[in-house]
Deep mutational scan, measured.
Amino acid sequence: QRITLKDYAMRFGQTKTAKDLGVYQSAINKAIHAGRKIFLTINADGSVYAEEVKDGEVKPFPS
């Protein structure tokens, strides 16, 4: 399943989102408010992988 960072954070909370991605909650808040195009893939085992689309390139998040 693929979902935006904002939607994932709204569904699970910023604290869990940060923990799942290995970053601080403040980084999640800042990324959402900056309007960054970050998409999360939720794997069947429950693990989460995030990618950011920037300038036409897709890069892992966090980099």
Rank of each mutant, 00 (worst) to 15 (best):
V58R: 08
R2Y: 10
K37G: 07
H33Q: 14
G56C: 07
A34N: 10
T4F: 06
K6T: 09
A9R: 06
P60A: 08
F12G: 00
D45M: 05
T15Q: 15
I28V: 10
S47T: 13
V23I: 11
T4E: 09
V53L: 13
K6Y: 12
R36M: 08
L21F: 02
F61E: 02
K19D: 08
Y8A: 03
S63R: 13
A18D: 01
A50H: 01
I32Y: 02
Y8P: 01
N43W: 10
A44T: 11
G56A: 07
Q25R: 14
E57C: 12
A34Q: 13
A50F: 03
D7Q: 09
F61Y: 12
D55L: 08
G56R: 06
L40M: 09
L40K: 00
E57Q: 13
E51G: 04
K19S: 11
R36A: 07
E52D: 03
G46N: 06
G35E: 10
K19C: 11
A31P: 01
K16P: 02
R2Q: 10
A9F: 09
P62W: 05
Y8S: 00
Y24A: 15
P62R: 04
I38V: 08
D55V: 05
N43H: 10
F61P: 03
T17Y: 01
K59Q: 12
V53Y: 14
V23T: 13
S26F: 10
F12C: 05
E57H: 12
K54H: 12
A50P: 02
I42K: 05
D20W: 03
P62A: 04
A31F: 09
V58G: 05
T4L: 08
F61W: 15
F12S: 03
A34K: 09
T41F: 13
I28H: 00
D55S: 08
E51F: 09
A44R: 04
V48I: 13
Y24C: 15
K37L: 14
Q25D: 08
T15G: 11
G22V: 03
K54R: 13
F61L: 03
K59L: 13
G46E: 05
R2E: 05
D7W: 06
M10L: 13
L21E: 00
F61H: 02
T4M: 06
D45P: 03
F39M: 07
V58W: 14
N29W: 15
E57L: 13
I3K: 03
A44S: 12
V58K: 08
I38G: 00
S47Q: 08
P60I: 07
V53N: 08
S26K: 09
D7Y: 06
K6G: 08
E51W: 06
P62H: 04
D20F: 04
T17C: 07
L21A: 02
D55H: 10
L21T: 03
R36W: 08
L21P: 00
Y8L: 01
Y24S: 15
A44C: 09
L21Y: 00
K37S: 13
S47R: 09
N43M: 12
V58D: 04
K54L: 15
D7C: 11
E51M: 08
I32M: 07
V48W: 03
A50S: 04
Q25C: 09
T17F: 02
R11S: 07
H33A: 14
T4W: 08
G46R: 05
I3V: 12
T41V: 14
R2T: 10
L40V: 15
V53K: 06
K54Q: 12
H33T: 14
I38F: 01
Q1F: 11
K19P: 00
D20C: 06
A31Y: 09
F12R: 03
E57M: 13
P60D: 05
V23W: 06
Y8G: 01
F39K: 02
G22M: 06
I28Y: 01
K16I: 05
G56K: 08
V58I: 14
H33P: 02
Y8H: 03
I38M: 01
L21K: 00
I38L: 03
K37T: 12
P60G: 06
G56S: 07
V23D: 02
T41K: 06
Q25P: 15
A31K: 01
T4P: 15
I3P: 03
N29C: 13
G35M: 10
Y24T: 15
A31V: 07
G22K: 09
L21W: 01
I3D: 03
D45R: 04
G56W: 05
P60R: 11
V23H: 03
S63F: 09
I32C: 03
Q14S: 13
H33Y: 13
E52L: 03
P62C: 05
D7E: 14
R2K: 13
N43G: 10
Y24I: 11
A9T: 11
N43R: 13
F61V: 02
S63K: 10
G22E: 04
T41I: 15
L5A: 01
I42D: 01
K16E: 05
N29Q: 14
R36C: 06
I42F: 08
M10D: 13
K19N: 12
K19G: 07
Y49T: 13
F39S: 04
A9N: 06
F39H: 05
S47I: 08
A18C: 04
N43T: 12
I32R: 01
I3G: 02
D20I: 10
A50N: 01
A27H: 11
E52S: 03
R2N: 06
P62F: 04
T15R: 13
V23L: 09
M10I: 13
G35Q: 11
N29T: 14
F61C: 06
G56I: 04
A27C: 15
L5S: 00
E52R: 02
G13C: 02
L5G: 00
D45L: 05
K59Y: 15
G22Q: 07
A18G: 05
F12V: 06
I38Q: 00
Y24E: 15
P60W: 05
G46P: 00
N29I: 14
M10P: 00
T15W: 14
R36T: 05
M10E: 13
T17Q: 01
T15P: 11
Y8T: 00
K19E: 11
K54D: 12
I28Q: 00
H33E: 14
V58M: 09
E57G: 10
K16S: 04
T41Y: 14
Y8C: 02
A44G: 11
I38S: 00
G35K: 13
N43E: 10
G35F: 06
I32W: 02
K37Q: 14
I28A: 01
K37R: 11
A31C: 05
R11D: 04
Q14K: 12
K37D: 09
T4H: 09
S47E: 07
V48L: 08
I38K: 00
D20G: 04
T15E: 15
N43S: 11
A27F: 14
A44V: 12
L40F: 03
Q25L: 11
L40S: 00
A34W: 07
A18K: 02
G46M: 06
Q1P: 10
L40A: 03
A50K: 01
L5K: 00
A18P: 01
K19M: 11
A34V: 08
V53P: 02
H33C: 12
A9Q: 08
D20E: 07
A50I: 03
Y49I: 11
D45V: 04
D55E: 10
G13D: 02
H33I: 14
A50L: 03
N43K: 12
G13Q: 01
H33R: 14
R36F: 06
A44Q: 11
H33K: 11
V53E: 15
E52T: 03
L21H: 01
D20K: 07
G56T: 07
V53W: 14
R2I: 10
V58P: 06
H33V: 13
F61K: 02
V58A: 10
F61I: 03
M10H: 12
I3N: 03
S63A: 12
P60C: 07
Y24W: 12
K30G: 11
G13N: 02
K16W: 02
I38H: 00
Y24L: 13
K16V: 05
Y8E: 00
Q1H: 10
T17M: 03
I32F: 03
I38E: 00
D55C: 10
R36P: 01
V23Y: 05
R11T: 10
T17A: 11
R11Q: 12
I3L: 13
Y49Q: 09
A27M: 14
E57I: 13
M10V: 11
T17P: 02
I42N: 03
D7R: 06
T41M: 12
F12P: 00
F12K: 03
Y24D: 15
P62D: 06
Q14T: 15
D45K: 04
V48Y: 04
K6M: 10
I42G: 02
I42Q: 06
I32D: 01
R36E: 04
A27I: 15
I42R: 06
K54W: 12
P60V: 07
I3T: 08
Y8Q: 01
K6N: 08
D45F: 05
V58Q: 06
A9K: 06
D45N: 08
E52P: 01
L21C: 04
Q1N: 14
K59E: 08
Q14R: 12
P62Y: 04
L21M: 04
A34T: 12
D45H: 05
N29V: 14
